[in-house]
Structures are given as C-alpha cells and as structure tokens.
C-alpha cells in the first residue's frame, strides 16, 4: 500500500529516520555481527590470543552434554508453560465471556498481573514455596510431600513453570476473551437449537473458531518461555539444582558474562538468533494467512 499524497524534500526523510537507524545499527546490527564473528573464534578469557576455528565452537556446543541437557530443559519448560498457560486462560476466558454480572470486575482483576515483572513473579512464588518459611511449602509438607526445591530438580522446574504461567495468564486471557467475543452469537445459538449442550457447543463450535487465536498465542508463549523467563530463573533458582532449570538464555548469560567463555557464548547466541528468526517467520506467515481470510 502506498500513499498518493507525498511531500518532497531531499534531506528531511533521512533526518527523520536517522535516530531509529542509528540506534538499530549501533545496538542491534553491530552486536549481532560481533556475535556471529566471535562464534567462529576461539579466545582465552583475557582476549590475548584469538584463533579462527570455523564451526568448532558449534561442534563443541552440540557435543556438550550440559548444552544438550539445557535444550531438553528448555523444551520441557516452554512446553509446560505454553500448555498450562493457554489451558488456564482459555478456561477463565470461556467462563468470563458468558458471565453477565460482574464481567468487568473479573476482567480487571485478571489482567493486571501483566504489569508484574517476571523477576517479581519469581520472587513472589519463591516466597510461597521456600522450603523453610513458605506458606505453600508448609502446606505441602504437612500433607507429607518432601518439598525442597533446592534439592529436587523437578520441584525447581515446577517453581519456575508456576511463576512463568502465573505472570502470563493475564495476557493470554485478554486475547482469548477478544477472540471469543468476536465469534457470532448466532453460530452458538444454532448449535443450541440443534440440541448441543454447553460443553459440546464449546468443543465443536467455539474452540475450532478460536484456533487462529490459539495458534498465535502458542507462538507468543513459546517466545516468552524461551526469552522473557530469564529473569524468573535468575531471581529464583539460578539454573539449579544441578542444571535442572538451566534454560538456554540463562546458559548464554552464565557462560558469557560469568564464565567468560566468549566463543561458546557467542555460538549459543547465534543458535538462539536462529530460533527467534524461525519463530518470527512462523508468526508472520500466520498473520499473512489470517489477512486473506
């Protein structure tokens, strides 16, 4: 789509895009190229000697059991976050959509956690589940559960999943609610006249019509679980115990900033970039298709 009415000026448009382009080049493109470049170099921690090693860093990376473990943890984590987050929000949105009285109140009370920082979500749940003083940990222990996420990797993973899902419910809820409200009431009414009960109507009419929203949210949630949950992990489990919660973004940070393994960390950055690019492509493909409907 193009504008018919235009302005003419030789210098002005460049001046207008200059700030955005300058920031993009200095803080996005240049560092990304640096990451690409460093990923093919082998460097010691003091940067005194560097060697060009082709794809050696990538080879080392994919032979490293710790990295492969981190991939596994990330996939499990993002799968759990996406599925649990979508299921809970869809349930709430489906019920909120049909409520006549108090709908606005429920909506307000459910959406504000969007404003909570992931790190704080992590801290809140850590406080509830801390084995020595947590309120929920106390409840679990009195039920006979051996709750101590400092020792049990599965419990640590559960902690970050719960915090990540809790923070994301409001976002998913808003999109599901908007999706549900755009479904014509006549379709649901027709199904009701044909004798379908509320649950049948939901699964055979409403849910299929929601599939574009669901798919969009699935991609967004996977991106969220991959990248935005760094803060939750760093504020709570720090990747432990024994790498049980070491998701990929956290490992990049640990290897690069804390362990100063520049080549390895850069190679990990490149892998992550490829993941973001493919997820973005999936997202935009889908948007294009939706426009043609």
């Amino acid at each position: 789509m193009e504008k018919r009415a235009r302005f003419h000026s030789r210098g002005l448009p460049y001046l207008l895009v200059l700030p955005q382009i300058a920031v993009t080049l200095v803080f996005f493109v240049w560092p990304a190229l640096q990451a690409l470049y460093q990923s093919v170099l082998l460097q010691d921690a003091f940067a005194s000697r560097t060697k060009f090693v082709w794809l050696q860093n990538f080879k080392t990376l994919f032979e490293d059991p710790l990295y492969l473990g981190s991939i596994k943890v990330t996939l499990l984590f993002s799968g759990l976050v996406a599925v649990a987050g979508l299921a809970i929000s869809l349930l709430l949105a489906a019920f909120a959509d049909r409520v006549l009285r108090g709908a606005g109140v429920y909506k307000t009370l459910l959406i504000w956690p969007y404003a909570v920082a992931p790190a704080i979500a992590g801290v809140l749940w850590m406080f509830l589940l801390s084995p020595s003083i947590g309120v929920l940990a106390y409840a679990l222990q009195s039920l006979g559960v051996d709750w101590n996420y400092y020792v049990h990797g599965g419990q640590a993973l559960l902690l970050i999943v719960v915090a990540a899902v809790w923070k994301q419910i409001s976002y998913n809820f808003l999109f599901f609610l908007a999706g549900l409200q755009s479904i014509p009431g006549s379709l649901v009414e027709a199904a009701a006249i044909d004798g379908a009960g509320p649950f049948r109507r939901f699964w055979t009419v409403v849910f299929p019509l929601l599939s574009p929203t669901t798919f969009f949210l699935l991609v967004v949630n996977v991106v969220y679980a991959f990248f935005d949950t760094f803060a939750i992990v760093d504020a709570t489990t720090q990747g432990g115990p024994a790498q049980a919660t070491q998701i990929l973004v956290f490992k990049v940070y640990q290897d690069g900033v804390q362990a100063l393994d520049l080549g390895g960390s850069a190679a990990q950055s490149v892998v992550l970039m490829l993941i973001v690019i493919s997820l973005t492509v999936v997202q935009f493909r889908y948007v294009e298709r939706r426009v043609q409907y």
Binding site: V17, F27, Q34, A35, Q38, S265, S269, L272, V276
Partner: peptide, 23 residues
Amino acid sequence: FFWLIFITLMLPVEVRIFPTYQV
C-alpha cells in the same frame, strides 16, 4: 531502512547480550 528496522524484531537483548554490553 524499513527492513533494517524490521530486523530488530528478531534480535532481543537476550540473544546478543555480550556484544551489546561491549558496545
């Protein structure tokens, strides 16, 4: 320019931590 701006979508801080810090 348009594409250059588009690219930033694909480069969250998390994936370019160390080089951005250096800059």
